[in-house]
Design a protein around this nucleic acid. Sequence first.
DNA 1: TTGAAAGCGGTACCAA
DNA 2: TTGGTACCGCTTTCAA
Lengths: 389, 389
Amino acid sequence: MTTLAKAGSGPDPGRDAEASAGVPARPATMRDVAAVAGVSLKTVSRVVNQAPNVAPDLASRVLEAIRLLDFRPNLTASSLRRADRKTSAIGLLLDDVANPFSSALHRAVEEVARGRGTLVFAGSSDEDPDRERELLLALVARRVDGLIAFPVPAGARNPDARNPDAPGGAPGGAFGGAGGGRARLLSESRLGRPMVVVDRPLPTGDVDSVTVDNRDSSRRAIGHLASHGHRRIAFLGDLRTIWTAAERYIGYLEGLAASGLPLDPRLVRHDLRSIDDAERATVELLGAAPPATRPSALFTGRNLITIGAVRALQRLGLHQQVALVGFDDILLGDLLAPRISVIAQDHAAIGRSAAELLFARLDGDHGPPRQLVVPTRLIPRGSGELPAR
Amino acid sequence: MTTLAKAGSGPDPGRDAEASAGVPARPATMRDVAAVAGVSLKTVSRVVNQAPNVAPDLASRVLEAIRLLDFRPNLTASSLRRADRKTSAIGLLLDDVANPFSSALHRAVEEVARGRGTLVFAGSSDEDPDRERELLLALVARRVDGLIAFPVPAGARNPDARNPDAPGGAPGGAFGGAGGGRARLLSESRLGRPMVVVDRPLPTGDVDSVTVDNRDSSRRAIGHLASHGHRRIAFLGDLRTIWTAAERYIGYLEGLAASGLPLDPRLVRHDLRSIDDAERATVELLGAAPPATRPSALFTGRNLITIGAVRALQRLGLHQQVALVGFDDILLGDLLAPRISVIAQDHAAIGRSAAELLFARLDGDHGPPRQLVVPTRLIPRGSGELPAR
DNA sequence: TTGAAAGCGGTACCAA
DNA sequence: TTGGTACCGCTTTCAA
């Protein structure tokens, strides 16, 4: 018997359905392969996993059957039984997968994961604690090996209290509560698997994190503007409850102090949440006020704010007069006139570091929590070098 | 006995490990919950799945045990046995998750998936057939319910022939071949699960697809420029082997014809793969040539090309003279001077349509393949309305 | 070197 | 209403 034999445990009614009408056939299993190849299930397993010590003729029979049946291994079934329990999948919880910051980080995480044969589940929290919770539970329900997450700030909005039947991946709604209520899932770190947070650390500080030196780089930005003669530098920032926004503001204050400049509260605008907010605030700062109280330079604390500020400057025709340094690079910032000077975060490095840290944990690193800080880079392109006056 | 009883099948050595040292405990199972609650496994299953007809007191005992053990259902185990076999996960194969087009589409897919309790595996093919294949196999190995993919064009590069031990999710390297060689996996559609392709259809045309009306919108763009008096309109496009690039070029030709303009081959540049390529080509078109043969308007076939063209125009100081319409919107295109007129693709609509189509298939829609076409929008912002001369 | 049997964490089916 | 038992596709253990 040199060719394939339909030997083994007799005819296989399950697979026969394949030949019939357009009904999608059940995918072939190792058992099917074993039956067609006339070997045991275990032998198929050995061939699939490239185990040593399989007779060449048996192996080739199995390979042939695999081809014939279009068999593809079921990793979820295998991970269920395997000793290491790994699903070779990780979860990546971003604020918004479509945000350039997030997607650049995503890409870097993907690269590291790929080198480890791992796939990435990505999701957007929209800074909503309920969405964060829902996603986290769905990820854990699928037994991801680990998690990388932008933690949702504690004070974030929560429009409707607890959706009664949220469409979470897992049925049932009784899980994950450490005594019910709106407990923050992330900080509990009771998810039972390694996690690395990015962009901002958790208040508890007991979780691995990767952030940038927000404070120092903001201080440097102010120093940079001051070195070009600016003495009235405005700050435009996001919600102060957001850790990064708060840090950048502190850096601003430190920068003023270091340059011997006084803080003028009239030059500070917090809580800007959108491009429009920023545009309005910029117009206010520059338009209404008497000339003597106007800023000659702006420090914008986030990319959306930078965009709004640029828009306002252009509208007012002041883009060649008022200097600007923005935190976080903006795409095409080098096509504008003047080109926009920024503090660039290395999103790829952040993602790479986070992924490498996570995989180190998965490899058994049980050391104390690590707080990595990735450096930023001040890119002078023109807008930050406009002289005062 | 009103409180929880450690009844059932006696002591549970597995769970006892939890209390010991810092060793991460095995996650609690339904069996553990059953033992603690003093009920059968099946009753726990009923409670978890919110099945009707469970006595309230039993249910609350189970809930209490769930809380106590921090139990979280294992969806992968459940999907293995469940009749529908659904993993509630889909695969999204993009060219690059960090590309704005892709990530906007990703976000839209995520939203639809979320409404269905489904998570999204995202990956980047980089237009590399080997990466595409690797990702597809990894996705199938995890038994995603369906797939949404940017198909890698047939003629795409393939730097090194078949990596001998690619770190694919699945061990072994004998799968997916329809007879070995570099067979295109996507077009075979032998993955055994529903798939929707986006951006470009498959040559075979037998797979659901969502694209935009590349040809018509390009024709409209040319008509738009012609209506502003332009008679010498240049075309700058990507590789002609890419379907979208080819369609847009045809639209360009049709547009010229419709406006009664001759085709001047000297105004056509194909195979531009990067911002730099486009910048160089634009400089060539406008700089070297004698004035009479220079274009008064540019039609750029892709966002990277548009950026390169803008950069060149600015460098040459021609940005207020030479008109420009670009295919696909560019972020911040409205901050430039002049603001850039574009044919905007509705990436969110593409993603939404693709996801809805996919879920319709998952719901049992067995109709013939559908080829959806999403309309585009010509956004006049200034650069496309500069007059000729 | 090969295979039989148990079992991973759940669900389906049927009996009590 | 509740529980027992087989079993999903695969790996592990151990015997042949």
